[in-house]
Design a protein around this nucleic acid. Structure first.
Lengths: 159, 159
DNA sequence: CATTAAATGCAACAATATATCATTTAAGAG
DNA sequence: CTCTTAAATGATATATTGTTGCATTTAATG
């Protein structure tokens, strides 16, 4: 495996297999996996970090050899988020491939302000506590956003 | 107290006193509380719900009788957030007055998709769990975003 | 192959946010 | 009180992010 030194740990560990299983999951649900959707998903996995919509547009446009317009990218990203194979980082206006494609999952994202990387973790206890708060207030939760920004371990060492 | 039926519960309960204590807190820290900063803070308290920056610009412009430009509004909102007397709702691109002005607080916001209202609660356990996760990963947290969107109790009854 | 709903292309535009530099304001020193 | 100086604001332009509306293409199904 040569020429991998510029790829992040996330990108290195994300093989074709992960994308294929994400694609398969969407297909199982009856969703159409078009070439654009697959291209966007590949770009997300390949980046291994949150990508802005316009950054994504440039990547996919270059990879496909033609100009993809912003609305197509936004629609595609919306679709991937609905399917749970991607997630939007609200505090960054950016999108990442999601490791937990089950629907309505509650992830915690840790976003590094230095390298721009995002780590996704699960914490059922956080989800439970939050849901308890909501229930106590009679609030019907449709979507959860739990994001931490700061400095990841590698970036702290570099300083 | 006449003519209050169009104000939200939040707005009703937010008197001058709250604003004054927020202003006093900022002053104690050595911050300059200018007329623009106070006007923006008043608008935030008065609204009792998250306001977008441009919505804020229109409100403050009308109240002051002259056009305030977007950059001034953004700078002012940034300042109020740094002081902890306001908070940004990332998933809404909006700002609310903050009931817990202590710095580096971890609030949970419950934002209603129907009425646009936002309720702010504290949950030290959520904060603790999140911090434990971060610590385990060697991640240095600088900022936390915990936001729920869904339907508040009153809006559920209306349906 | 025809039908049809979903997906995409495309152009314009709306909403959100920032950069830059000139000007004003206000706190503290003398 | 006036001067000095740093902070805050004004003003203009521009960058970035996201959406609307409608025409066209694509792909699943009969």
């Amino acid at each position: 495996m040569p020429h991998l030194k510029h790829l992040s740990a996330n990108a290195r560990s994300s093989g074709e297999k992960d994308i294929h299983s994400a694609v398969a999951l969407c297909r199982l649900r009856g969703a159409r996996m078009t070439s654009l959707r697959i291209a966007v998903l590949k770009a997300l996995w390949g980046a291994g970090r949150p990508l802005g919509a316009y950054e994504m547009r440039d990547l996919v446009s270059e990879a496909s050899g033609r100009e993809i317009a912003a609305p197509s990218i936004y629609r595609t990203l919306d679709f991937l988020c609905e399917q749970g194979v991607a997630a939007r980082i609200e505090s960054r206006n950016a999108y990442v491939a999601c490791r937990r494609p089950e629907h309505d999952h509650a992830c915690v994202f840790l976003v590094c302000e230095t390298c721009g990387g995002a780590k996704e973790i699960e914490n059922p206890n956080v989800e439970r506590l939050i849901n308890e708060d909501a229930k106590r207030l009679g609030f019907a939760v449709r979507h959860r956003v739990v994001e931490l920004s700061g400095y990841c371990a590698p970036c702290q060492e570099t300083l």
